[in-house]
């Protein structure tokens, strides 16, 4: 799968609105991917509408939700709220493609220099995008991420810490919910589909492979929903062993640089 493969353009635009104003310089694209998260997606959308950062380009990709009326909910919400955004788009996949492809679809439509990535079951506090954007712009970073608050089934704080390629090679502690420079996404050829999971980890390792720099913004501004049946908790844990192997295979140079051959890969 590559972001340039012509057969991957499988989205159909279900709703679109574009303001007549000139594109703002500080425009941030927000990519929300949804798959059967009808119960939560409106919370996510409300959180985006409540952002203190004014110039937003909202792109929602529905990855062929088939168990709820997500598309109708999102369409109705956009009809009501599109004035808040510089541009507002809903794209619907004609076939379920998985989270990587859904994010790539959203990025392809994004026009802001920076893109904030979020799943439809999560939410963020009002200052989140403004703070991440300001830090990325002022600090000259290719991505910024903040600390997460886990909520719902479990309440605790996420695992984010200082960006450190060596530590990232050992284990992933940076969530997919982050602000990314759109050009960096293109340069690493987007998110790769990995059947077993960990495509967010793989994305960050590709980021490191390409010499991009991310930065940790030490504030708790994004919220990660803990619910019993998220894909991470089930499939990825079961596939933990093979995923370590997949990562080592896909990023041999990083693995060689930071993990000694004798170190216990299972640790």
């Amino acid at each position: 799968m590559s972001i340039t493969a012509p057969w991957m353009a499988t989205g159909q635009t279900a709703f679109t609105f574009r303001s007549r104003r000139k594109k703002p310089l500080d425009l941030v694209s927000v990519c929300i991917t949804n798959f059967n998260y009808g119960d939560y997606v409106l919370d996510a959308l409300d959180a985006i509408a409540a952002q203190t950062h004014a110039a937003l380009d909202l792109i929602v990709v529905d990855d062929h939700s088939d168990r709820d009326d997500s598309v109708a909910l999102i369409t109705a919400w956009m009809e009501e709220n599109h004035q808040r955004f510089w541009r507002c788009t809903l794209i619907v996949h004609t076939r379920n493609q998985g989270p990587s492809a859904a994010r790539n679809t959203a990025f392809r439509h994004a026009v802001g220099a920076f893109v904030f990535v979020m799943d439809a079951d999560n939410t963020i506090y009002p200052r989140a995008i403004a703070r991440l954007h300001e830090a990325a712009r002022d600090g000259g970073f290719d991505a910024t991420y903040c600390q997460l608050e886990y909520f719902d089934r479990e309440q605790r704080i996420g695992s984010a810490d200082i960006w450190d390629p060596a530590q990232m090679t050992r284990e992933n502690y940076v969530d997919v919910m982050a602000l990314i420079r759109r050009q960096a996404w293109a340069d690493v050829d987007g998110y790769s589909h990995i059947d077993q999971g960990w495509e967010d980890y793989d994305f960050w390792l590709k980021f490191i492979d390409h010499g991009f720099e991310a930065a940790y913004v030490p504030e708790i501004l994004c919220r990660y929903r803990m619910h019993g049946n998220s894909r991470t908790t089930n499939d990825a844990w079961a596939a933990h062993e093979s995923l370590r192997g997949i990562m080592a295979f896909r990023h041999p140079e990083l693995t060689a640089r930071y993990l000694s051959a004798t170190s216990d890969m299972k640790a």
Partner: peptide, 10 residues
């Protein structure tokens, strides 16, 4: 911090 995240976020 988990209890007060929403408070501090402002």
């Amino acid at each position: 911090f988990a209890r007060n995240a929403a408070f501090f976020a402002q």
